[in-house]
Design a protein around this nucleic acid. Structure first.
Lengths: 334, 334
DNA sequence: CTGAAAGCGCTAACAG
DNA sequence: CTGTTAGCGCTTTCAG
């Protein structure tokens, strides 16, 4: 990498002259500016990012901590973050907490040494179950802003971007009820995290309002999802609707239906939190609750960057943005 | 963030004394060392990463450029990279080329300004079709090593980690033939990239060796995969086997089979490049060709870090590691 | 055993 | 219009 020093030497001018010329300072003469720029182009000069960061005390880098990169929703959010960040000249350093509190703490600690200007994160499962939030508060008090998305800690004062989980399942359930379904089951692999609980409540409310009996199937970590859903079909032959809290369960419910001579959507309707690409995995295609993951990522990035730009430490008005879900009907509902 | 300066002031010693004490230099007295360390702990001192990077001319950061974060395989590799990098004290900056040559170039350029010590990347689709490799060569000649994985450019001299694509489909196809399948179709959504071509060749070879007729279904970007596969079933009623080059096609082929009164695996066997979690989306579960994505990521990270550590610029012996696939049979094959 | 000083690459206030 | 200087935070000779 060429440095200002080398350019200066070759041009027989001072380092600051070169620096100013490249930054189009009015202080420098037309002639000199041209000469400097030409040489810089020739050598493909690029200002050293690290030196700039040190000087300006900001890295133009965002630390992103996500619990699970294999989760389609989360990686889509990451995509949105990356895109929006790039648009504003920011890079992202990605850490994966793997749902572990310790790893989350470590990542936060590790990057809070000048590596990043702020964080965007979704909370690890373990962090939620242990209800630990001190590491977030510490980071913020060190002057590093945090934006939380999806799985957030309400007791931490920071910007947040969330989904209307409760309303989403409430509406989806109501929709199935409007199809005259009476025996709707709620399937969830994520009943241990906040988001999953909200989704379950939305379902419950819709069912209770209509005087229908609720039925929740919880699938745990080690469980065989297909087996559990198979047993569900066996036991509840009257089942005529499924609302799935995660992306796989809905797909499997559809594909399993035929084993029990049930036609989708004639005999049973299925809707689930999922993405377009995964909804394709079932025949017929799954009707989905879209979460607009990319948009969530973009919003989170915007919130953080806005805060980073408004140097005024004063404004403590933290905002919580709600990105509304959309029910996209395919062939698995009437 | 506390700095050495502040600690020095408070302790009435010089900055260098503090620095040495914290680095356990023998030059500093037992007593002083203790005092310094205590204050440092109290203030939660962490050496500024940026200053260190500038001083030592290395960032302990790896630039990762992947074509598509929503691709399960690629994000799993990313996971492997992140994990291995962390183990060695490296962070990763992630850029997503989105299969675009321009974005790939930009990312490379942008990070080659001192932001990272080297790159791990998989080539964008557009880069492959346009057969452009100069940007890679330039980056390498600037002193930034590159490790390529999965989709690699053979004409670029660098370390590589690849999959035995040809053998994988060759073996998988042979397996179906051993089940006495005669009308095996190869389905591919990725026939435009090198990896996809290799997979197709492996299938072709196996079929031709046995004197069987090949039949390839290519699914393009805008196509409706379900429609295409449906038409395939309609047209080729004799079909009794499927080898899928991507993760979705295999799943869909299984779930679609019943629409044509075909039992899996009795009437038709299906195997596809996929992951365990996606193989779950079909009933019965898809038999898969596992690529060991995490291992690929880990190996790539190791190769890069090894090269970064061996300061000797001299050794130009680039290695290409082949991570062998594994055929994992589920219930979609006999 | 401790401190002063140089330097990593850059910007910017201040002289000339 | 151009150059000198200081300083971002840190490590590391080299003096003392």
């Amino acid at each position: 990498m060429v440095t200002l020093k080398q350019l200066a030497k070759e041009l027989n001018v001072s380092i600051s002259t070169v620096s100013k010329a490249l930054n189009d300072s009015e202080e420098i003469g037309e002639e000199t500016r041209k000469r400097v720029k030409e040489l810089a182009k020739l050598y493909n000069y690029k200002p050293n990012k690290v030196a700039l960061s040190l000087k300006q005390n900001k890295t133009k880098t965002i630390g992103v901590i996500i619990p699970d990169i294999l989760n389609h929703f989360l990686s889509k959010v990451l995509f949105g973050i990356e895109r929006e960040a790039n648009l504003h000249g920011y890079n992202i350093i990605t850490c994966i907490s793997n749902e572990s509190l310790q790893k989350e703490k470590d990542s936060l600690q590790l990057l809070a040494n000048g590596s990043v200007d702020g964080f965007i994160l979704s909370i690890a499962e373990e962090t939620q179950t242990e209800n630990e939030i001190n590491h977030f508060k510490e980071t913020i008090s060190q002057g590093l802003p945090i934006v939380m998305f999806d799985r957030v800690a309400h007791d931490v004062k920071c910007d947040k971007v969330i989904v209307d989980n409760f309303e989403a399942t409430y509406n989806a359930t109501k929709n199935l009820i409007a199809e005259n379904r009476k025996h709707i089951v709620f399937i969830s692999k994520i009943d241990n995290i906040s988001v999953g609980k909200l989704r379950e409540r939305g379902y419950n409310k819709a069912m209770l309002e209509e005087g229908l009996e609720t039925n929740v199937l919880r699938i745990l970590k080690g469980d065989d999802t297909q087996q559990k859903i198979k047993r569900l079909y066996k036991k509840h032959t009257e089942m005529d609707g499924v609302v799935a809290a995660d992306s796989a369960s809905g797909v499997i419910a559809i594909n399993m239906a035929r084993n029990f001579k049930k036609k989708v959507p004639k005999d049973i309707s299925v809707v689930g939190f999922s993405s377009k690409s995964v909804s394709n995995h079932s025949v017929p295609k799954l009707s989905i609750i879209r979460q607009h993951a990319k948009k969530i990522g973009a919003q989170a990035a915007q919130l953080l960057i806005d805060r980073l730009n408004s140097s005024s430490e004063t404004h403590n008005d933290y905002t919580t943005k709600i990105v509304k879900t959309t029910l996209v009907k395919s062939k698995s509902t009437l």
